[in-house]
């Protein structure tokens, strides 16, 4: 198995379909293996790895049903904490976003906003929206490839946190274009989510202003 990426919580391996499933079939698969972390006690370690593996597989398929491109899940192995899934060919949005022409970039961001709205509408919180978790494919789709911190939650608060965290991710990775990108995300979100979108967006802003290191004048409750 070829190591594709050593992430923070899991290792990603690239493997051929045939080698994994032992029968006729083509193409490549990605194996996401949640490795044990020696720094934490086994109770926390097992609980986090098991629940995140099971939940992530379910979130992938529910998100796909809601109209968001996600890799197809072929197998969930809760003994070894592995998910075997489709390999999505493309580039991480992280690497393309700043190279795109402004208009294309706005469109991609709007699409991302629409997709966030789609998962939110069916009660899913992504939990870790960053541009490294999104794959931009040749046919212009954006795949959400990591639901490792996702959950089922339909509250305005959780949706607000989701949006707020995406803004924070844009700030730390794409600080040059954060504002224009986030504006486009919100416009897509608004259009797709429909009624109630403004409430979520307002909450996201409030959550940002609640932060520990935000200027007092800008805080929500002065």
């Amino acid at each position: 198995m070829a190591l594709m990426k050593k992430g923070a919580e899991a290792n990603l391996y690239l493997e051929s379909f045939v080698r994994v499933f032992h029968h006729a079939g083509g193409g490549k698969v990605v194996i996401k293996h949640r490795v044990s972390k020696r720094y934490r006690v086994s109770e926390i370690d097992n609980q986090l790895r098991d629940s995140r593996t099971a939940l992530e597989a379910k979130l992938f398929s529910d998100a796909k049903r809601a109209g968001v491109p996600t890799p197809l899940v072929y197998e969930v192995d809760r003994t070894n904490m592995r998910i075997v899934m489709e390999f999505v060919r493309g580039q991480q949005v992280k690497f393309v976003l700043e190279k795109l022409r402004p208009k294309t970039r706005r469109n991609i961001c709007r699409l991302i906003g629409r997709q966030i709205a789609r998962v939110h509408r069916v009660g899913i919180i992504h939990g870790d929206l960053t541009t490294s978790n999104m794959i931009f494919t040749e046919n212009g789709k954006v795949y959400f490839v990591d639901f490792g911190l996702g959950e089922y939650n339909s509250s305005v608060e959780a949706r607000g946190v989701d949006l707020h965290l995406f803004r924070r991710a844009l700030q730390s990775t794409h600080f040059r274009i954060t504002d224009e990108a986030y504006r486009a995300v919100l416009s897509g979100y608004r259009r797709e989510f429909g009624r109630g979108a403004d409430e979520v967006i307002k909450r996201a802003r409030e959550i940002g202003l609640r932060g520990r290191y935000v200027q007092k004048e800008e805080r929500a409750w002065h």
Binding site: G7, A8, E9, K37, R40, V41, S132
Partner: peptide
């Protein structure tokens, strides 16, 4: 301690990976 620190280390680990 175990819970608080595991969370701290996980977030630090993400930053290292990122």
């Amino acid at each position: 301690q175990e819970t608080a620190f595991a969370a701290l280390v996980e977030v630090t680990e993400r930053a290292v990976a990122h």
